[in-house]
Design a protein around this nucleic acid. Structure first.
Length: 594
RNA sequence: CGGGAUGUAGCGCAGCUUGGUAGCGCACUUCGUUCGGGACGAAGGGGCCGCAGGUUCGAAUCCUGUCAUCCCGACCA
């Protein structure tokens, strides 16, 4: 390809609406253009990158026996109603774009494809003899994100590879999950990405085990915790740890203490000369469940620890057998709306009485009470007295009339000891989630009534797994991980072109013909090569070549008179002057070795 | 949705306080000189000042509304 024909439009200035390096560089290099919030056009250079990633994904998916398909993006609401997700995905905070057709039928634009694929599998897979089957597709997904961000990192339309596997039993599902884990590691490795596989919350998608693949980068939206050896890594949502030891409360009789205006742990501790770990804090929350019921929740934590909302949501789901739509702190305004008297926020105790809820308009009349084990492990502690500006010093759990249920509710933190290997401490890293694999089990097949005849002749719901890769996000994550102050340094495997031949001075016939010759020979060898044949000064071409990140550059300049060229490796900036033939050989060898 | 910010040429910005009909750099076109790290000179082209109302003799500028985009939180590949 000749650069003069490439519609290459690079920008010198950084676009004002791009925050992170990868987003800026993709815009400046002429890879993408914003069309709307979270909506991007992939320009020819970008499309080449995406196609290369897709090719690697296809090879690895095919290698584990997955079959490529293409499912509709326009999906009837009826399918989503069958799985029970239509409401949650379209109402309120729901992320599914949806519309009515001319007949008034409701349709959704696919944010994911469990419904479609499970319905199909239910029709097509009739016998255990057909199993296992894995299907995958690469296509655009649509999600009405609450906040699109950072270019391709969180778009409302983005390219995803999604795969779904169907099995006759749980152990076969586990085997497939393991194979996908391997395939994913190979995919990211081949794309030149450094990733960490982390334990993840299975969240709204549901199911048993789940693992995320994170590209480690400062710009990442996720926080992950891992130990130094890498034997443990988890998303903050899921991470567990051994909390630091609490500092015991000094000897003394239990008593009430006046704590005027001391509504926060910090204020309380500094005024009363306490350590946060000597205090039990009680958070009052209200959970709105899938069924519409509103459940008041009391969550007790040691004063130095933070609530992990995902863990609490999971505890609620387990306790009530339904999903949580929304979870938030109880506010004074909400109490007023419920027709309740004010609560002594800042001085709540674990034994806050259910009578506080009597007469509530829409809330359930009793608290769901949970406490983190680190709080329950305290022998004597300080907590609110359920009276404004009053706390209790030296209180014990046995004093609590309504004991809470023990559930892990706290965020693990950097510096905590690792639970699986207490010798090691956890460190925090930021990550970009580029892949996620789930063992769904029978959640969707039961809901969608997708069953097969098992070896015993009985009907059984299909066992399912699902496996996603954010292809367009992965491409940008690669830039985030591979760039310098001059521009992008694409890993060879996913670079839009592998080599660029820069003719320094097009007026010079010798340079021009040597450049053309090298370019033609590269093309003959099947190398994706660019020839910068623009009537520009050499400096402009060098800047652009650096910016768009072509891994190898062959500069045909003054030394062309002696048949010499300069070979530059983009990532390392290492440059060598050598004869054209030798440069060609080196590049071909490097490409072959990769 | 809550909080913050910004909308002026393809990109980056100034002008707004104190109203008088729009400017700078880059990019683009033409000519000349230059030609290995975003050249120089000369001459050009390009703007419903986000949109709609209002105030005023007169609005990019003041007022009201509205829309869009970006950043911080809940969502996720």
């Amino acid at each position: 390809m000749r650069v003069s024909r490439l519609m290459l439009v690079t920008l010198r200035d950084v676009p004002a609406d791009a925050e992170i390096a990868s987003h800026q560089l993709l815009l400046r290099g002429g890879f993408i253009r914003r069309v709307g919030s979270g909506i991007y056009a992939y320009l020819p250079l970008m499309w080449r990158v995406l196609q290369r990633i897709n090719a690697i994904v296809r090879e690895e998916m095919n290698a584990v026996g997955a079959l490529e398909t293409l499912l509709p993006q326009l999906q009837p609401a009826e399918l989503w109603q069958r799985s029970g997700r239509w409401q949650g995905y379209t109402a309120g905070e729901g992320i599914m774009f949806h519309l009515d057709d001319r007949q008034g039928r409701q349709l959704g634009l696919g944010p994911t494809h469990e419904e479609v694929i499970t319905a199909l599998a239910g029709e097509l897979l009739r016998s255990y003899r057909q199993l296992p089957v894995t299907l995958y597709q690469i296509q655009s997904k649509f999600r009405d994100e609450i906040r699109p961000r950072f270019g391709l990192m969180r778009g409302r339309e983005f390219i995803m590879k999604d795969a779904y596997s169907f099995h006759a039993d749980a152990s076969d599902l586990q085997a497939c999950y393991g194979a996908m884990d391997g395939a994913y590691r190979r995919i990211f490795d081949r794309c030149g990405l450094q990733t960490v596989a982390v334990e993840a919350d299975s969240g709204a998608i549901g199911g048993a085990a789940s693992q995320e693949f994170m590209v480690t980068a400062e710009a990442g939206e996720d926080l992950i915790l891992m130990n130094e050896s890498g034997s443990y890594a988890a998303n903050l949502e899921k991470a567990v740890s051994i909390a630091p030891d609490a500092i015991p409360l000094p000897e003394g009789d239990s008593r009430s203490i006046n704590t005027p205006g001391q509504h926060t742990i910090e204020a309380l501790c500094s005024a009363q000369q306490l350590e946060p770990s000597q205090v039990v804090k009680v958070l009052a929350l209200i959970a709105r469940m899938d069924s519409g019921s509103e459940r008041p929740v009391l969550a007790c934590l040691r004063g130095d620890q933070e609530l992990n909302e995902v863990k609490l949501i999971n505890a609620l789901t387990a306790a009530l057998g339904e999903g949580v739509l929304d979870l938030g702190a109880v506010t004074a305004e909400q109490l007023e709306r419920q027709g309740l008297q004010p609560w002594p926020f800042g001085a709540l105790g674990p034994d806050l009485e259910d009578s506080r809820l009597v007469g509530a308009r829409t809330w359930a009349p009793t608290f769901l009470r949970f406490a983190d084990p680190t709080a329950l492990a305290l022998d004597r502690f300080v907590c609110g007295a359920n009276t404004p500006d009053q706390h209790r010093w030296g209180w014990r759990w046995r004093d609590c009339q309504v004991p809470p249920q023990a559930v892990d509710l706290r965020n693990a933190r950097a510096g905590d000891r690792c639970q699986s290997d207490p010798e090691q401490t956890l460190v925090a890293r930021r990550g970009i989630e580029v892949g996620h694999i789930f063992q769904l089990g029978q959640k969707y097949s039961l809901a969608m009534d997708a069953s097969f005849t098992n070896a015993d002749g009985g009907q059984e719901a299909l066992w399912m797994g699902c496996y996603g890769i954010g292809v367009s996000r992965l491409a940008q994550a690669a830039v985030e991980q591979h760039h310098d102050d001059a521009g992008i340094c694409w890993p060879l495997a996913i670079a839009p072109f592998q080599v660029i031949v820069v003719v320094a001075n097009l007026q010079d016939a010798t340079q021009r013909s040597l450049g053309e010759d090298l370019y033609a020979r590269l093309m003959d060898q099947g190398v994706d090569a660019l020839l910068d044949d623009r009537q520009e000064r050499a400096g402009v071409k060098f800047k652009d070549a650096d910016l768009i990140g072509i891994p190898w550059r062959i500069v045909v300049g003054r030394a062309a008179a002696d048949g010499q060229v300069e070979l530059v490796e983009r990532a390392t900036r290492q440059a060598d002057v050598l004869p054209g033939d030798a440069a060609l050989e080196r590049v071909l060898a490097a490409i072959a070795a990769a």
